Simulated assay, not measured.
Amino acid sequence: MPAYCIITNSHFLPKVKEPAFIIFVAVFLLKILYTLRFYLGSGLSISQWWNQVRMGPEGKIPYLTASLFGVVAVVFKLLGISEVAFEVTQKDQNSSSSDDQEDDANAGRFTFDESPIFVPATTLLFVHFTALAMGLFGMQPPARGADRAGLGEMMCCVWVVLCFWLLKGLFGKGKYGIPMPTIFKSAVLALLFMHFCGRIPLPLR
């Protein structure tokens, strides 16, 4: 919704001058500070808190990856289209000390393959990158009166990009980089989203 509003130069959140905007910001900050205080009070680090925000049960990434495909798989099974399969993947085996040193340097980094599970999240990141660029450089269409995108939509868009910065694998190489087929599929889906927002007149029939 924030990206759509920025791309179409509309809004769904209060304006900065409206009192309701203060309530929106206060609720957002209070939730962040409350959870952060809980983690720090439990002896955990800020990094662990941030990983929980992104990857935990209430995080943004699971909704568009494992949870999304899990729901689709269950629906297919209930409809008798296909069976749900669970496959345990093998972990990399190191054979030399140089490999051990390299793995230590890459500890904590995410690895990617050509699985479609990465397509929705990568598409979302592309859409929000595009929306932020359009908002920052004033590339949106003319708004009707005062109904143009504001600071609230930009804040939400930045927050989504930060949560999905896990996909910095866009700039990685090898197994630490998102494969080109996944990037291509995500780019096509992002272009289709832009088309249906009325910003890119693709020759669709």
Rank of each mutant, 00 (worst) to 15 (best):
84 V>Y: 04
144 R>V: 11
107 A>R: 11
56 G>C: 10
149 A>M: 07
109 R>I: 08
92 D>C: 00
63 Y>P: 01
99 D>L: 12
108 G>N: 07
86 F>R: 02
143 A>G: 15
142 P>D: 06
90 Q>E: 13
56 G>Y: 05
45 S>C: 01
85 A>N: 14
149 A>V: 06
34 Y>R: 14
115 S>Y: 05
146 A>C: 07
70 G>L: 04
72 V>W: 06
57 P>E: 00
35 T>C: 09
136 L>E: 03
131 A>I: 00
71 V>C: 01
130 T>G: 03
102 E>D: 09
67 S>L: 12
147 D>N: 13
114 E>I: 04
95 S>P: 03
86 F>S: 08
137 F>H: 06
145 G>P: 10
61 I>M: 00
69 F>N: 06
60 K>T: 12
31 K>H: 14
80 G>L: 06
135 G>L: 05
61 I>H: 07
39 Y>K: 11
133 A>S: 09
106 N>Y: 10
89 T>W: 06
47 S>C: 00
53 V>A: 00
73 A>Q: 10
101 Q>L: 15
150 G>H: 07
119 V>H: 04
101 Q>A: 12
126 F>H: 05
106 N>W: 05
60 K>D: 14
143 A>V: 02
95 S>M: 05
123 T>I: 07
147 D>E: 15
111 T>I: 10
83 E>G: 10
76 F>L: 12
76 F>G: 06
32 I>E: 11
124 L>P: 05
128 H>E: 03
31 K>Q: 15
28 F>W: 15
144 R>S: 12
118 F>L: 03
39 Y>L: 01
86 F>H: 13
40 L>N: 05
130 T>W: 02
61 I>A: 03
70 G>T: 02
140 Q>N: 09
85 A>D: 10
122 T>F: 03
55 M>H: 12
87 E>S: 13
125 L>R: 08
145 G>V: 02
137 F>M: 09
85 A>C: 06
119 V>P: 09
65 T>Q: 06
43 G>S: 11
77 K>T: 12
102 E>Q: 11
77 K>V: 04
134 M>G: 06
73 A>M: 04
65 T>D: 09
43 G>Y: 02
90 Q>H: 08
28 F>E: 13
118 F>N: 11
112 F>Y: 12
32 I>K: 01
60 K>C: 13
134 M>H: 07
72 V>T: 05
64 L>Q: 06
98 S>A: 14
94 N>I: 11
116 P>A: 08
112 F>I: 05
96 S>G: 06
41 G>F: 10
74 V>H: 01
77 K>C: 07
98 S>I: 02
133 A>M: 09
112 F>G: 02
97 S>Q: 08
81 I>H: 01
61 I>E: 01
146 A>W: 12
69 F>L: 10
37 R>I: 06
132 L>I: 09
60 K>S: 15
56 G>V: 05
27 V>P: 03
57 P>G: 07
113 D>H: 00
129 F>Q: 10
119 V>K: 04
34 Y>I: 03
61 I>D: 03
38 F>G: 04
136 L>G: 07
67 S>N: 14
149 A>Q: 04
76 F>C: 11
126 F>N: 02
85 A>W: 11
120 P>C: 05
78 L>H: 02
55 M>F: 15
105 A>E: 04
